[in-house]
Design a protein around this nucleic acid. Structure first.
Lengths: 167, 167
DNA sequence: GCATGAAATTTCAAGCTTGAATAATTTCCG
DNA sequence: CGGAAATTATTCAAGCTTGAAATTTCATGC
């Protein structure tokens, strides 16, 4: 009889399959870290900022009306306390503004200042180019396949992808 | 010539291409972070340890004879000072041993203790399963394609991939 | 020998990250 | 109303990460 691979709960996987999974994951991790390192370095030397700051500003850029701290941290999938610190620095840089939420003394609305918006617009434009330098050489059918595969991974098991998309 | 003005480095990419590049990158980042989060969480709850520690131990596991601090940091592509701290904690945990290098009073050789080896062996076995639960359901031809694409990305521009491989 | 620069590592300040504990406020019900 | 529970945000300790500066030791040339 033939081997019946139960896809769902990874039953008794062949050692070949396990090895291949590991190989793919390590390569994916390596490639991702490479791209991240490029972005980090470029943000640092060209804009004197960091990736976490960039991520926060990207989220705020898309919500001109501002976001509550909790919305921000869940959008970025990082802890609450984490966002507090990053916002603190962005505020003292003059890129972000905090405004109390009318009707709820607990909550704070956070939004980019005009200066923050201009700043981010410049960074985002550069960021697009950096990314395109790396991924732009891939043929369209290849990137399409990659997207599809990555989707599969996200949903392979228990990934709750109820977040934000595109930009 | 239909198109004019080539900006600087990359040759005039269409806005479609740029958008697609960004889309792929964001998805890749998201998928990678998902897998990393799973591994981190599992390491934490099942082994009360962290990903950086796991990475260091993985490197040392493959070099029974030990590694110098500088070799370790370049293998993991992290800064020198970073490794110092992680090793410090692993030493006080009894998982790692430091031995002076004969003939060079500056250098230190770092290696797993027996306890560290046993510990890592258990973690590595579990780690394989976690990864396989995520990637194991992908058909072989898909993972093969993924590997190839990721290779292209790594070498798309200026990635010096002279490091360690497999596990 | 000995000064000078290279190499190996640690130290340091700053920032990122988490999960847990705390504090303030709001909401839900009885 | 009034108290329990949930929500929002900050604080905190511990650890990770970097790039730069400092330290110790080695290697070389003179």
């Amino acid at each position: 009889m033939s081997s019946k691979t139960s896809p769902s709960a990874a039953r008794k996987a062949g050692p070949e399959q396990v090895k291949q999974s590991l190989r793919v994951w390590l390569k994916m991790l390596k490639a991702t870290k490479h791209v991240e390192a490029v972005v980090r370095e470029n943000l640092r030397v060209e804009f004197d900022t960091t990736l976490p700051r960039f991520d926060v500003m990207a989220a705020l850029y898309r919500f001109e009306e501002g976001l509550k701290m909790s919305e921000l941290s869940s959008a970025l999938r990082v802890s609450n306390g984490n966002v507090t610190g990053i916002i603190e620095r962005l505020v003292s840089d003059g890129s972000v503004l905090r405004v109390p939420v009318a009707g709820d003394k607990r909550a704070m609305l956070v939004r980019l200042t005009q200066r923050g918006r201009d700043e981010f617009a410049r960074m985002a434009a550069a960021h697009e180019l950096w990314i395109n330098e790396i991924f732009g050489s891939l043929p369209l059918d290849v990137t399409a396949g990659l997207l599809a595969t990555l989707d599969t991974i996200e949903h392979a098991q228990g990934l709750h992808s109820e977040g934000e998309h595109d930009a």
